[in-house]
Computed example of a mutant assay.
Amino acid sequence: MIELTNVSKNFKLGETTVEAVKEASLHVEKGEIYGVVGYSGAGKSTLVRCINFLEKPTSGTVKIAGQDLASLNAKQLREARRKIGMIFQGYNLLKTATVYENVALPLKLEGLEKQLIQERVEKYLNIVGLTDKKDHYPAQLSGGQKQRVAIARALAHEPEILLSDEATSALDPETTDSILKLLLEINQTLGITIFLITHELEVIERICDRVAVMEQGKIVEAGSVLDIFTNPAEETTKRFVGSEASFEIPPELLQHYKQTGKLVSLYFVGQSTDEPALALVSRHFDVLPSILAGGIENLKNDTLGKLLVHLKGEEAAYNSAIQFLIEKGITVREVAS
């Protein structure tokens, strides 16, 4: 559905050339939710704007449903963009227009008939749960409601792709949760492909099928959400999903446990969460496990249990215990110093 091949985007700042995106390549399947995560300045916003040519790439190709956007003339590009909706962090609503008018105006500019405009506005305000707010102005709405208006406006064009540029980063946790549920519902009921960028790992956890990690303009790692969470390869990814960071264990305490044994992160996926594997370790091996922290993450398609465990015992016993855990389907990672 979306195919980026070696996409780069440079900007000129005086005599300096800034490489915002560097040879980024990715492929998004029709109907999936694909996320890109990275810290501020990683190039995420520039990348998402290259998808609909709000930023024309310096090099590389962008294909939407097999169509190379660079090969289109101005009229053809406008037609292609109608299939790509976009929602922004800042909502971009007209302050002097009602909710209804904010959704309807782009359709009027597109030249749609009045009856069709009314049908679409009412349909998508209903989907986002704002039918009763259609005569309100943005100043009368909460942040979450404003974002719902922006989503309805993007959907009113009936796009095949929805781009989300940090759409939840300005919202409180409860409102973020409701917007994520709405995006997931839109994906599942309307079949719209969603491509989102975020610096919030929770967003990726909750609704994405696959994820790419960006750093300094490059895609440094990509894969299924489960694979990235349980087996990150790059240092940037490890900083996002690292056990010691997510459990907020003081560094001096972590160091103490490492000096008195082995400190490991255990990941239980799906049915493996039902296995009493850790209890069996102390029964079958000369190793004493102590659970320091734990939690359960509900991913879009899986349940991921996480434990930070201190294992005390001889090296040979420890190695046997780790092998036993792996055979039980548990991912094991030793925590770095």
Rank of each mutant, 00 (worst) to 15 (best):
E113Q: 11
Q145L: 12
P106F: 08
Q188W: 01
L182A: 03
P138E: 03
G85D: 05
R82E: 12
T98S: 12
L130Q: 05
I197L: 06
F195L: 12
K83F: 08
L184Y: 00
A152S: 04
D165E: 14
S169E: 11
K133L: 05
S142L: 10
E119F: 00
K83L: 09
T131P: 00
I204L: 07
T98W: 03
T176S: 12
A167E: 02
I84C: 14
R153H: 12
K146A: 05
E110N: 13
V121T: 13
E166V: 02
E174N: 08
L171Q: 07
Q118W: 08
R120D: 15
Q115I: 11
D165V: 12
L105I: 15
Q140R: 07
L107A: 14
E166S: 02
I194N: 03
T176Y: 11
R153V: 14
P138C: 07
K134G: 12
E119C: 01
G144E: 02
E122Q: 11
R82A: 08
A97M: 08
D135S: 06
T175Q: 08
D132Y: 01
A152I: 06
L162Q: 15
L112P: 09
L171D: 07
Y100T: 10
G111E: 15
K133P: 10
Q147T: 10
L109P: 10
D132W: 01
V103R: 06
L125Y: 12
A150D: 11
K123T: 15
T96N: 13
L105D: 12
S178N: 04
T96C: 05
E113F: 00
Q145R: 10
D172S: 00
K114N: 14
L105E: 15
G191T: 02
I161G: 00
